[in-house]
Design a protein around this nucleic acid. Sequence first.
DNA 1: AGTTGAGCGACAGCTTCCCGACAGCTCCCC
DNA 2: GGGGAGCTGTCGGGAAGCTGTCGCTCAACT
Lengths: 238, 238
Amino acid sequence: MQHYELVEKVRLLVVDDDPPIADLVATVARYEGWEAVTAYTGEDGLRRAAEFHPDIVVLDLMLPGVDGFGVLDRLRASGTMVPVVFLTARDGVADRVAGLTRGGDDYLVKPFAVEELMARLRTVLRRSAGPAFQRSVLQVGDLTMDEDTREVRRGERLLSLTPTEYEVLRYLMRKSPTVLTKAQILDHVWEYGFGGRSNVVELVVSRLRRKLDETDEGGSPLIHTVRGFGYVLRQAAE
Amino acid sequence: MQHYELVEKVRLLVVDDDPPIADLVATVARYEGWEAVTAYTGEDGLRRAAEFHPDIVVLDLMLPGVDGFGVLDRLRASGTMVPVVFLTARDGVADRVAGLTRGGDDYLVKPFAVEELMARLRTVLRRSAGPAFQRSVLQVGDLTMDEDTREVRRGERLLSLTPTEYEVLRYLMRKSPTVLTKAQILDHVWEYGFGGRSNVVELVVSRLRRKLDETDEGGSPLIHTVRGFGYVLRQAAE
DNA sequence: AGTTGAGCGACAGCTTCCCGACAGCTCCCC
DNA sequence: GGGGAGCTGTCGGGAAGCTGTCGCTCAACT
């Protein structure tokens, strides 16, 4: 995996007036080994940016006081080119367009799934880190996933996955060969606030299996059930 | 083992309005060499958190007065990023917890097994301590247990264990070469309040033996009976 | 040899998992 | 803006695997 090997330890600044959200993002980032700092107002965000020198910023557009765009403008005015990923509420269609045209590097609609946010942050970092040539390709056994082209292959065979299947598989691949519980998968791949305590994960896994292992005789299964615990993606765990 | 060697002595705060439970957890933790403090109300919990500066918190969600969510909010509001493991009753509350765990925190449903709680606490500490990838592997003789992949091997041979077998073996491995009574094993591995005063432990041990020592000639037995007392896991104890 | 504790086969109840069928939703195309 | 296609999640039946009880047998210590 090791994308962004250049960066010692990614420094992330999260600016969101909703403390639980800001902390959520910061916590997840720390668990990835990043350094993360939060700010709950635009002013504070600017202050922290000045002293912390983040490598990337997550910025909510709806801020009391100076709003997201204001923060971005002032960031740029101070000469920093740090990449920014916006967060925005569901409705603001106007916001989306504006966000991108006004210098953001990416944006995400709330409520989002943490894995998706992290994936985007990694992408943005990768792009801004250097020549845009370093592809990010995950690989487990003869299964590969190109995060740029979104192509997933089992050996030669190209798989066609739905968005959810793609996300679940990516999470499994990134964590392989660690065993993940259904709760972990649910928590990371679905939007925060998702209610469905049901067997969604089982279902998606089952669909994934059919596509991955839809064995043209060829393959031993890659997704394994660990009964009473969860799932793993790995080769021939015997 | 010794994950988190950085931390001198883990400082644990337990917040639960049921004193026996809180004390149970604190006692087990102290027995592990941790420092543990208990609080029986949310208010008290916040107070203790402020002065004690725990490394990790066990928090019951059903609290009189300020409930678990309230405590969490106020903890976070005060800027503490201390990781939290939640306790919750079997019913619907579990649903609401889910969202809280995606940061990497965790939760457990009551009644729980003490060893499982300790295992989760260790995992959370390990992950929040640093870059998320330090593996935790237990080893006794030629027997190894990888807590991330849940792979257990006797030499090369991969064993397939059921959840209960896995838990019992983990406990034996963690305590090796200490002799454990059946009561200790029962108390740590089964949920507190478990009725079966029966010979469950014997049975699981017997099943474990068959799998571990299912000797392809290769092995001397690892699980030894100390008649009239209990079991030990160790190499060639004779 | 007797007594007591341990081992373990067999079975039944229960939990967990898998996945077919279906319905609501969204997004896209015409 | 109406119709269609594909995606997502719910429900529920059925299968598989896990757990604990019973009770007999075996081993160890006295």
